[in-house]
C-alpha cells in the first residue's frame, strides 16, 4: 500500500498531518526518531568566572542549556563520534556572557563563537542582574540527541493517533450524543443528528454509552495516523520531519546491509 501524506496545517513551528498506508510500528518509529534521534546543538558545559547574581551557578547553567539554539545539525559531529580526545572545533562551539548590573540578561545577549549558531528566541529572560551584581561565563555548545537530555530534543510535542471513523447505524434524533460529546463530533441540524468532524473524536465512547439504540459505531483506521508536532524553533517543523525520515531510511539501509552480510 502506498504511503500518502495529507498536510492539514503547517507553520514554522507546528505541523499537523495525516499519514496513511503504513504500519503502527513505522509510525511509532517516525515519532521516536523525531523526538529522540534528530541531533541538535545546546549548551552543555558552563565555566563561571564570576557570578554574584541571585541564581546559583547550577541553576544558571540549566537555564542556559534549555535555551533553544538554531543551527544546521550537519555542521558539527557528535562528541562520541569525533576523533578528538577532549573537544575540538568539529564537535563543539562556544558562547559567552559578560555583564554587570543593573541589567536584564536575555538569550539575545549570548555572544556566539560561531556565527552559524543563533538563539531561536531572542527574548528569553536568563537572569535579572541587580545593582553591582556581575556575571562572567563561558559556555560550551555541543551536538546531542533527545536520548541524552531533553535540551537536545527537537520536537517539544510529538504524537499521533489512529484516524477515528464515527458512523450512525440507528438514530431517533434524541440528541444525547450531541450533549455528551466533549469534542463536538456530532451536530444537530434542523432536529436531525449529524456527524461533523469525526477526526476530532478521542474515542472516549461516551456517545456509544449514551445512545439508547446502540446506534453509534466508532472505528479506528489501523493504518492511518494523525500526527501533531511542535518544535521549539531550533528547526522548522517541516525540516524536522524530513530529517527524521532520512535518518530512518539510512538506518534501514544499514540494517539491510548487515543482514545481507549474514545471509552470505
Amino acid at each position: 500500500m502506498a504511503i500518502e501524506i495529507n498536510v492539514i496545517e503547517l507553520t514554522e513551528r507546528y505541523a499537523k498531518f495525516i499519514i496513511s498506508g503504513l504500519t503502527p510500528a513505522s509510525a511509532n518509529a517516525l515519532r521516536r526518531c523525531m523526538i529522540n534521534e534528530v541531533p541538535r546543538m545546546a549548551i552543555d558545559e558552563v565555566n563561571f568566572y564570576e557570578n554574584t547574581s541571585v541564581l546559583f551557578d547550577e541553576q544558571l547553567a540549566l537555564r542556559l542549556g534549555l535555551i533553544p539554539l538554531r543551527a544546521d545539525p550537519g555542521l558539527y559531529v557528535l562528541e562520541d563520534e569525533c576523533t578528538c580526545e577532549d573537544g575540538c572545533s568539529l564537535c563543539q562551539s562556544t558562547a559567552s556572557i559578560s555583564a554587570e548590573g543593573p541589567i536584564k540578561i536575555y538569550s539575545s545577549d549570548l555572544v556566539m563563537g560561531d556565527e552559524n549558531i543563533s538563539v531561536a528566541d531572542d527574548n528569553i529572560l536568563i537572569v535579572d542582574l541587580k545593582d553591582g551584581q556581575k556575571l562572567l561565563l563561558n559556555a560550551i555548545i555541543k551536538l546531542g540527541t533527545g536520548e541524552m537530555h531533553a535540551k537536545w530534543q527537537n520536537a517539544v510535542v510529538c504524537g499521533y493517533k489512529n484516524i477515528p471513523h464515527v458512523s450512525i447505524t440507528d438514530c431517533n434524533d434524541c440528541g444525547r450524543c450531541v450533549d455528551v460529546c466533549p469534542r463536538d463530533v456530532f451536530k444537530c441540524v434542523d432536529g436531525r443528528v449529524m456527524i461533523g468532524d469525526d477526526i476530532n473524536c478521542s474515542c472516549c465512547n461516551l456517545c456509544v454509552e449514551a445512545c439508547e439504540l446502540d446506534g453509534i459505531v466508532i472505528e479506528e483506521d489501523p493504518e492511518a495516523f494523525l500526527f501533531k508536532l511542535e518544535t521549539d524553533g531550533g528547526m522548522t517543523a517541516s525540516a524536522l520531519i524530513v530529517y527524521a525520515v532520512r535518518m530512518l531510511r539510512d538506518k534501514a539501509v544499514r540494517l539491510k546491509s548487515v543482514l545481507e552480510r549474514f545471509s552470505h
Binding site: L66, D121, I124, D232, G233
Partner: peptide
C-alpha cells in the same frame, strides 16, 4: 525567575513572562 521551559511539555515560555 520564570523557568525557561514548561516543566511538563518543554515548550519555551521564558520569553512570554514579561508581556
Amino acid at each position: 525567575m520564570i523557568p525557561v521551559r514548561c516543566f511538563t511539555c518543554g515548550k519555551v515560555i521564558g520569553g512570554l513572562w514579561e508581556e
